[in-house]
Write a protein that binds this DNA or RNA. Structure first.
Lengths: 338, 338
DNA sequence: GTGAAAGCGCTAACAT
DNA sequence: ATGTTAGCGCTTTCAC
């Protein structure tokens, strides 16, 4: 591997000059620069970013802490889409991404903070980590600049991006109410996700706005997965046959609920309306196609990356970004027959 | 940020001793080691992997060159699953992954080789790159250890992992033949993927084995996408109404073909049998559910990572790994009515 | 406009 | 068992 030292020798100049020439400084003679560039090409030189990082104390990398690159959780393409958004923004800014092994099958010995500090990432984007994860709080409270996705925390060096979950859930339930439904069940996610609380709040808001009394038995928790949604729906529909509509806090759970309805011989949407949340790819492929609340996952990643880079350049105007959601009416909801 | 120098000062030893103590060398007094570990913890020390990489000339990172983290190509979860497999294997071996910006929207100025050399990745895994990509050949011919996924090239420092595409395609077509189909069309991928050639070969083999004459007009190319599959199927079925079965080189194209069949009022599987390739998530959610050739994407990534680490440790027994595929019979294929 | 020298944080001979 | 020293490849004062 050739170094600037080699170039310096061949070009007959000092390493300082080589460094400056290659980095485009203005105080170097154009002839010298040309010569140096030429020699660099000749020797097939590649700058050593590691050496540079060491002296500059910046690695030009941003860490990615996602739980979900496991075999199981591939079903919602949520992560990939967010990643695509991050990648898109970051690639314009000459940063690379390092993917941390959050979900090692081996016993995890290092905390997220350690991971970040050892690799000397300039910042980190965190997604899909449960709020009861102790490592999460450690990294948030550390001095590492971080952006949280769907976790509403802020401070000097932490920003977050999320969608308006309260309003999103409200839209979903309002849509059901508009269709004449009164007995509306909710299948929420687990309690260790902020979005769960928020979507529950939206559910309550909508009912209240329509003067429909809240029946707490109508709300059950799943785990955001298809299987858990199916189980929850089954339990709910069996014990409360008067329910004519279901709002699910994720599309995957909604799809599970559709399965439960099928088992119970409840036609969707004739006998049971279902609205999901997320608008994952699957939503428009299942039949009936799922009515859902769309959130722009790509944008979530894109804006998250933007917030982080703002943080890194100290030009952070805001530490918080809330994106809009949209109701996508498809085939799984219908007028109530009651 | 505290350094081993700080630790050395506080503990009253030299930096060498600190280094050796922290790295678990045996030639250090246990009392000294205890003292040093203690001070390290006290000072909240994190080793600087960048400094270490510089001197060790190993970065303990492996690069990931995938084309497909774009907004559009999120549909098949192929990439994520492979990634999950890579991540799983690599995490057991204390390597981190760096994701390169292959598909920058900005004009790409650096070749893959440059990307890898600058970051000093120890090796690279390449996936989803078209065979006509000039950068691909450059990196393969470079001295960077690399593993190719679904690109059958080998040399001293390049291995590859793939599935048995010839046999896979053969199984698919054989299944159709077994069901009495004679006029079997094929929607292949584009010519810049090795798998396309191989699957075509499998198609031909199966026909030949059944003494069915090859009609080259029955084979058309798509782009592996749903839209292209739809278009290709439409053209094929319109110009050759005698076709009763379709073998598609990807599930996405098969789903597109199902759309085309619907438009043409051809019932699947009653009037038209369709078999796909990949077994992506969508395959079991569309209706009718898609009969397809399953390939284990997770394993593809897992074994790819293994091959790379073998390469890096010079213990590479083999540079080639071919995984088996499996026919998954679902609802999109049926006996021919002819 | 260019160079000499110091130093980023670490490891690894080579002493002792 | 521990310390001294050099050096990985680069950037950056500071001097000329």
């Amino acid at each position: 591997m050739t170094t600037i030292k080699d170039i310096a020798r061949v070009a007959g100049v000092s390493v300082t000059t080589v460094s400056r020439a290659l980095n485009g400084y203005s105080d170097v003679n154009e002839d010298t620069r040309r010569k140096i560039t030429e020699v660099a090409k000749e020797l097939n030189y590649s700058p050593n970013s590691i050496a540079r990082s060491l002296v500059m104390k910046k690695s030009k990398t941003i860490g990615l802490l996602v739980s979900g690159f496991t075999k199981e959780s591939v079903k919602d393409n949520f992560i990939v889409e967010v990643l695509a958004g991050i990648n898109e923004f970051v690639s314009g800014a000459d940063y690379d991404l390092v993917l941390f092994n959050t979900n090692s099958s081996k016993q995890r010995e290092k905390t997220y903070t350690q991971l970040c500090r050892e690799r000397r990432v300039d910042g980190v984007i965190i997604q899909g980590i449960r709020t009861d994860d102790p490592y999460l709080h450690e990294v948030v409270e550390s001095d590492i600049p971080c952006v949280l996705i769907d976790i509403p925390l802020e401070s000097g060096n932490v920003s977050h991006v999320t969608t308006d979950n309260v309003l999103g859930a409200e839209k979903a339930v309002q849509h059901l109410l508009d269709n004449g439904h009164k007995n509306i069940g909710m299948i929420n996610g687990h309690e260790f996700a902020f979005v769960s609380q928020q979507r529950l709040e939206g559910y309550k808001n909508a009912l209240q706005g329509a003067q429909v009394e809240l029946n707490t038995n109508y709300v059950v928790n799943g785990e955001f997965t298809e299987e858990s949604g199916k189980k929850a729906a089954n339990a709910l529909l069996t014990s409360h046959p008067e329910i004519t509509a279901l709002f699910c806090a994720s599309d995957l759970m909604a799809i599970g609920a559709m399965g439960a309805a099928k088992d119970l011989k409840l036609q969707v949407p004739e006998k049971l309306s279902i609205v999901g949340y997320d608008d994952i790819l699957l939503a428009s492929y299942v039949s009936p196609k799922l009515t859902t609340i769309q959130q722009n996952k790509f944008q979530l990643g894109y804006e998250g990356a933007r917030l982080l880079l703002d943080l890194l350049s100290n030009q952070s105007k805001t530490h918080r970004m809330v994106l809009e959601t949209k109701l996508i009416k498809r085939e799984s909801t219908n007028h109530s027959n009651e």
